[in-house]
Write a protein that binds this DNA or RNA. Structure first.
Lengths: 341, 341
DNA sequence: CCCGGGCGCTCAACCGGTTCAGCCGCCGAT
DNA sequence: ATCGGCGGCTGAACCGGTTGAGCGCCCGGG
């Protein structure tokens, strides 16, 4: 209840008997003050518990010291989708050293997302943004470049002309996954994917098709969903009720795989005896269910860390190349087995 | 690539042929300009796409237009814990109308959390914060009041002297849950709880004990965990391996309940035949597993919305009372049944 | 001995808003 | 006719930093 007074550089200047300018030079490690004056000023600032006012700094140098992340997925999906929180944890880790803040916005639709960028830009609230869930010809890319708001795309490389990206090549993992299934005798393999309009979904699908062709498979039956468990369950029911029931299904996230597992119980299909399941994205969830889920695992927090780091160096004026992270690896667990005879 | 120029009130003033002050009055709906001048200024501002610079505004009126939320839970728990993302969605909804931004910070430990508050305060980055996961004699309360940083406590009422809270009374739900189980013949009921140092965990436990006594039960065996599925599984194994195996277990979140369900499969215990399971917190997860989980459901996004609204009116200088939300309700599903003979 | 040049510092402007004091002109009241 | 008051506006200070211009001073070189 004794609201502390926040010290300003003027307070420090008065205490040290120097001018505001000298204090600023000292605190920012710039030339213009002697070593011992600097020492003294730093000591006083530390003792007073000084922090630079983000507003004043932003106003004078035009940088807000914050970056933004807009997540445009429905709340009910977000709640249960482990990806984002892990990603955000990673982003924080990448930001921590610099004291940059993270603004998070959860929107209801793409229009609201664009409005958020416009507002952040107009209010000079963020210095740059992280872009997730890229779509084909994503209008956000054009918007951000029109606004001149620096951005880093997460999860996919090309298509984002002029905007660097931090991404993971799913190709190798798709190949590994399909080869593994084929080696175990699977021929009818299906895929339950995320929304078709996401670039990473589409591209993963293309690799699936290409690999299937290479391996001489009849093709990979693909059903698109909204990533929710409910939709995943529906897709699974449909696949299992069709004429040529698959012997293996690969899912685009782990929540849908868990949902599928309970569909198999409901329908009396044994996993992995009659049906193998593979999750893409490996959260704790995969280890909690029975049987534990074979999953394609990528290091999500690392992804966030790299994206944050890339954006920071972009803001520092550096030339940032596309950054490719370690490819995901297949982690076999109890939900996969040789195909039934 | 053509970085738009962000208009300032000086630009608007020049265009309208008035002073900066007049523009400020017009844009803020304050007295001091005639209706028609105001009209003209608003029109020009809209045409130019003006947004107030958050930095300039923060500097001059001392308010940042942002609130903060620090989540101090390990990343691996956060990823899979549906509560937070849903809560955050709700907070955004409560903030949306005012244009207030949300700063999110995920920290590794309590020390880092306090450091975050100190920094935010020193940098004047946020006007107030939302406090979750309250502990007994929580040092954050003292810190925030020392700093004079407004706060709203989420999830619990008393103990937060001087700080308003938005909370849910678990008492009725605990009573309902235990009565339901007892009515179905259960006598040996156990509880797998969250960390003992959280106030809401402790209080829920006290109500459990009191109700159990009222209902003439031998007492509720309670195991504390870190909320992770792994820990929940461990606790479940221990309870099921003990001498007086419970016939019903109530969990403090849904992830642990899912984990417990797979432990029962692993140990050959039938649910709900031999063992009933109840989850506290009802995310989609509960409906995805088989059998679907009976759960105590509370409206988490609503919780976030109210908390945000309370903080906003606190920042407006209003007297904010503790706000009690609708009590949670028991949603029976397939994981509960009469106790075995 | 004088001059030039850096070092160490001060001063003031500036970023983009808000707000207060003050001024002008017009109105109604006395 | 005079005066008070108020509506409508301007000008300037202020918030807390950063930064460029400028100014003594001391030192070394010619």
């Amino acid at each position: 209840m004794s609201p502390l007074k926040r010290p300003t550089i003027a307070d420090i200047a008065a205490a040290a008997g120097v001018s505001k300018g000298a204090v600023s030079y000292a605190l920012n490690g710039k030339a213009g003050v002697s070593a011992q004056t600097r020492e003294r000023i730093l000591e006083i600032a530390a003792r007073m518990g000084w922090h630079p006012s983000s507003a004043a700094r932003a106003l004078s140098d035009g940088r807000s010291g914050a970056i933004g992340l807009v997540v445009d997925r429905p709340a009910w999906v977000l709640g249960i989708e482990p990806f984002f929180m892990q990603f955000i944890s990673g982003v924080e880790a990448g930001l921590a050293a610099t004291g940059t803040a993270l603004l998070l916005q959860v929107t209801e639709d793409a229009g609201a997302e664009e409005a958020a960028y416009r507002r952040w830009w107009g209010e000079r609230r963020v210095d740059g943004v992280l872009l997730v869930d890229l779509r084909d010809d994503d209008p956000r890319i054009a918007l951000l470049s029109e606004l001149g708001l620096p951005a880093v795309v997460v999860g996919h490389a090309a298509g984002a002309a002029g905007v660097p990206s931090v991404w993971i090549d799913d190709g190798a993992a798709v190949r590994e996954t399909l080869a593994y299934l084929v080696a175990m005798g699977h021929r009818r393999i299906a895929r339950v994917a995320g929304p078709a309009h996401f670039v990473h979904t589409r591209e993963r699908g293309e690799v699936f098709d290409a690999c299937a062709a290479e391996l001489g498979l009849p093709g990979v039956d693909c059903v698109h969903t909204d990533y929710s468990g409910e939709d995943g369950a529906r897709a699974t029911r449909r696949l299992l009720s069709g004429p040529a029931r698959p012997t293996a299904i690969v899912f685009d996230n782990d929540v849908m795989t868990v949902a599928a597992l309970s569909v198999t119980q409901e329908m009396g299909v044994s996993v992995p005896g009659e049906l193998s399941l593979i999750a893409w994205d490996d959260s704790e969830l995969c280890r909690l269910v029975h049987p534990a889920l074979t999953a394609v695992s990528r290091r999500v927090p690392e992804h966030g860390r790299s994206a944050a780091a890339a954006l920071l160096s972009l803001l520092d004026g550096a030339e940032v190349p596309d950054i490719q992270l370690d490819p995901p690896v297949l982690v076999p667990r109890g939900s996969t087995a040789p195909a039934p005879r």
